[in-house]
């Protein structure tokens, strides 16, 4: 009888785990939604001062620390 009770729980365990996993997936995906826009805006601003060819933004996660790393590639000198 107890093994039956135990089995009964695995679908609800799955539901709980999925609900949390998907919530955090959706949050981190939300962060990425604006990246294209951010890239374009940074490109515009930096362009006012130096000649840039591209901007690349990556979200990096290490342990508890999240960081945005922004690479700005300059055009070759004359």
């Amino acid at each position: 009888m107890f093994s039956w009770l135990k089995k009964k729980q695995s679908a609800s365990v799955a539901k709980d785990r999925l609900t949390i996993a998907i919530m955090s997936d959706r949050e981190s995906n939300q962060d990425f939604q604006f990246l294209d826009e951010l890239k374009a805006e940074i490109l515009e601003v930096v362009k006012k001062y130096v000649d840039v060819s591209s901007v690349d933004i990556k979200k990096e996660v290490e342990g508890d620390i999240e960081a945005l790393s922004i690479d700005v590639e300059l055009n070759h000198k004359g």
Partner: peptide, 16 residues
């Protein structure tokens, strides 16, 4: 498996 609680039912999946 749904009846024995070993498989998510459609309603659970729809909720998610």
């Amino acid at each position: 498996m749904v009846q024995s609680g070993e498989m998510l039912c459609s309603e659970d999946i729809l909720d998610i």
